[in-house]
Each structure stands twice: as structure tokens, then as C-alpha cells.
Design a protein around this nucleic acid. Structure first.
Lengths: 166, 166
DNA sequence: TTTATATTTCAATACTATTTGAAAATATCA
DNA sequence: TGATATTTTCAAATAGTATTGAAATATAAA
């Protein structure tokens, strides 16, 4: 397989993977394109290589910057902006999980916290409390875990876990 | 807060949480409803409580059974089927992650495996190989981790990790 | 300034995913 | 068996999301 073909496959697969996990296809594809690009790209480059509109490219580049997955690069003497992706996959994983933790996990933890002390002594109420309590416990653990995970921690953790459970 | 209100909030939140993670809202809501229901529910109950159509209820109940998150329950003397959710949240977490691993992580690992040996000695080719190799490593570790995770392992792990990293 | 270039915005449009509902299939009972 | 209850299917309708593209805004050079 040629490098060009491999890149295209990666861009496509990363797009599909992202969209299965609630990240829009274009955003994931723009990210993938920057991950496999050797040099920083301009908005025009992105538009051209992915066949997407200026608005779309702009929007998703900004979203990626917001997620700390992409940074702006200024080339001396060049007027327009270039963009470059974080290529350290561990950092990428950390940034993605942190962002999602903040956006989706935290609100759930907050709600579960509220649901902790629903009154009632019926079996129904008890079973509800147990379920939400356990879920609260799980999500809180996850939250803490992600909160304190630096790259090295994650690496250590995943490695240790993989070995132990193999 | 009343039990009824708490349930509704939970159903709504679980639906939103699911849809942020690429699981359709109805499926997540049906799951949530069964999680907070004391007794098994019939298709009609689900339709009524969530205000969804028969087709929708049926489809999602089947999908949930497929994911091992819900089981059919037959009541003696009753003709129709009832449904009951797995309420052990650790099992729920395990089933969800396994299912998604199978559906979305595995295909990605397979592609990355193919992309391992793209030829070329240019800096471009090298950088591509490094990125895909690292990603392959990370996803494979994750895959192994999830493959071997039983409930107890997960519990032990998350607990240990949370403590260590706190 | 003015002119040229680049970026951002957003209403209109296209696209995708979900949901409906009624018909068909299936299962149970008398 | 026929009558009745229940489940399943799926084409069409609807709702939800993403994308376009051109105008508005911003920024830099002349």
C-alpha cells in the first residue's frame, strides 16, 4: 500500500470511528488529516484535501483547537494561518477523554449526586437508590481517574493492566 | 425530590449521556427506564411511559437484548413478554464497553495493523509510521484490557487506580 | 486611508438517523 | 381449525445534524 492510500484509509477510518463515538465525521477527518500530515496545513489545504467547504473547515479547525488537539501555527512572512495536530497519541487520548469527561461525565455525576437521597423505604425506592448509588460510585471513580491522569499515568496504568489481565 | 421525578430525571439524563456517546436516545432511555423499574415491563408499558411508538419500543428492546443489557422475562399465565434490565452497574459497564469494543475498536485495530508496514524512508513516511504504530499500540492495549476485564477485575482496577492517582 | 486577503458567521440546504404506524408474520388459545 | 393477541418489519414521514456558500467582519499590506 502506498503512503497516500494509507493516509486516505486512515482519514476515513478515523472519521467513522469518531462518528460512532459522537464526534462529527468532519471534525474527526480534519483531525486525522492533520495527524497524518507532515507539515502544518492551511484552511485551503484542508478544504481541498477533504472536499469540504470553507465554513465547515473553519468551524472544525476551531473546535479542534478548543479541544487542544490542534494548534495554530504562524509561518513568518505568511499572512494566513496554518494548523498542526498533536501527534503524540497518548496526549491525544488524554485530551479527548478529558474534554468528554468535562462535557458529559461531569453533568451525569452531578445529577447522580442529587439523586443520592431520594426518600422512601419501599423496595422500589431501595432498589432505585442502590442503582443510582452504584452508578454514582462508578462514575465518580472514573471521573477521579481521568482527572488525575497525566500521560505517564495513563501509560503506566494501561500497560500494567494489560499485563496483569492478559 | 420524589421518586417519580428522580426516575424521570435519570431517564432523561441517561438518554442525553448515551446520545453524546453515539447510542441513540431512545435506546438509552428504554434502558434507563428498565434500570429504574422495579418490576419487568411490557412493550406497552415502555411505549406509554416514554411516549414512543410500538415499532420503536420493539426495535430498541431487541437491540438492548442483543447488547446483553436487557433480558426477556416470561410471566406464568401471561401471553406477552416482559423485559428487565441488568441492574448491576459494573456488569452494565462491562457489557457496553465489550459491545463497543467489538463494533468499533476492533475494526480500527485491524486497519492500523495493515498500516503498520507502509514503506518509505522519507521523514513523511517515518512520521506516519510512528503515529499509526503508537495508535496501534494504544488501541491494542485497550482491546486486551477490555477483552480480559471481568467485573471484579474492573472493580479492583478502577479502585486501585483511583487511590493511586488521587 | 484604500485595497487586498483571510477569517468568521449564519440562513438556507442537504444529508442522516430516528421514529412512526399500519400491515404482515407469528404465537397462543379455545 | 379459526379467532385473537402479540410481535416484527419496513417504507414513508419526521426530526435532527452537518454542510454549504456567500455576505459580513476582521486583519494586514500598500
Amino acid at each position: 500500500m502506498e503512503l497516500k492510500e494509507a493516509r486516505d484509509k486512515f482519514v476515513e477510518a478515523w472519521g467513522a470511528f469518531g462518528s460512532a463515538w459522537g464526534i462529527n465525521r468532519s471534525m474527526a477527518q480534519v483531525h486525522a488529516l492533520l495527524m497524518v500530515s507532515h507539515a502544518p496545513l492551511s484552511t485551503e489545504d484542508v478544504m481541498e484535501q477533504l472536499n469540504i467547504s470553507r465554513g465547515n473547515a473553519n468551524m472544525n479547525l476551531r473546535a479542534l483547537i478548543d479541544w487542544s488537539l490542534v494548534r495554530r501555527v504562524l509561518k513568518p512572512g505568511e499572512r494566513r494561518e496554518f494548523f498542526e495536530a498533536e501527534k503524540d497519541v497518548w496526549k491525544v487520548a488524554t485530551h479527548i477523554t478529558r474534554e468528554r469527561k468535562k462535557r458529559e461525565l461531569e453533568p451525569l455525576v452531578r445529577l447522580l449526586d442529587e439523586l443520592e437521597d431520594i426518600p422512601g423505604a419501599t423496595a422500589e425506592a431501595k432498589s432505585f437508590r442502590k442503582m443510582t448509588h452504584d452508578l454514582h460510585d462508578l462514575t465518580t471513580r472514573l471521573d477521579t481517574l481521568l482527572e488525575h491522569s497525566t500521560r505517564r499515568d495513563v501509560q503506566w496504568f494501561v500497560k500494567a493492566a494489560t499485563t496483569l489481565l492478559k
